[in-house]
């Protein structure tokens, strides 16, 4: 019978060995330093609390990451339940005869400088950064994971415990708001 390695936990070395790895994992998902730092610390605390449940099957790092993933889902649920706050106004009639059609004042304007020669421009990047930061957190988190970090749809859905149709609604709203923000602050400025 093949002998499998039994992993052990050495909590005295956690911060030194894993804090950068866990922090990097978290910051690419939540994009906020203080929050990421807190989630890493909470992960260590939760790890200490449930040390007795560690069976040694997974490595210490994998085990800590599985705790961190739970923390990230909890955080996402928390921001997702804050109803009404900075909700994106929709562009389409959602009932009546004109359901699904553009609401007149939301129709995209043509852009005065819709050239793509300028996409390396530093100011353009900082305008975009500001626009992303202005998104409601639940939208910016999914948008960043999908668009900036390039995660697969399936992976995001699994990590945040949402359905693909949920994800596309969020992406659509995030992009709609970003389009409007870029229109106001860059293209027609």
């Amino acid at each position: 019978m093949a002998e499998t390695t039994k992993h052990i936990l050495v909590p005295e070395k956690w911060v030194q060995s894993y804090s950068d790895y866990l922090y990097n994992y978290t910051i690419t998902r939540v994009n906020n330093h203080d929050l990421a730092k807190d989630l890493v610390q909470e992960t260590f605390f939760a790890g200490l609390k449930s040390m007795k449940n560690f069976q040694g099957k997974a490595s210490e790092r994998t085990w800590l990451i599985s705790i961190l993933k739970r923390k990230i889902i909890d955080h996402y649920r928390k921001i997702n339940s804050k109803k009404g706050k900075a909700e994106v106004r929709m562009n389409f009639y959602n009932d009546g005869e004109r359901e699904g059609e553009w609401i007149e004042e939301r129709v995209p304007n043509s852009w005065s400088s819709d050239t793509d020669k300028d996409i390396e421009n530093k100011e353009l990047k900082s305008t975009l950064e500001k626009c992303i930061d202005n998104l409601p957190e639940k939208y910016s988190m999914v948008f960043r994971m999908k668009t900036i970090q390039g995660f697969e749809t399936e992976e995001i859905c699994k990590e945040l415990d949402i359905t693909p149709s949920n994800l596309w609604v969020i992406i659509h709203r995030a992009r709609t708001q970003l389009r409007k923000c870029m229109e106001d602050n860059w293209f027609n400025n």
């Binding site: 995209p108 819709d114 353009l124 975009l128 668009t147 900036i148 992009r175 389009r179 870029m182």
Partner: peptide, 16 residues
């Protein structure tokens, strides 16, 4: 909308 969206994707990609 699609034209704008394509341009935005380029900008997002560059930022990414």
């Amino acid at each position: 909308y699609t034209k704008h969206n394509n341009l935005l994707s380029k900008i997002f990609g560059n930022y990414a």
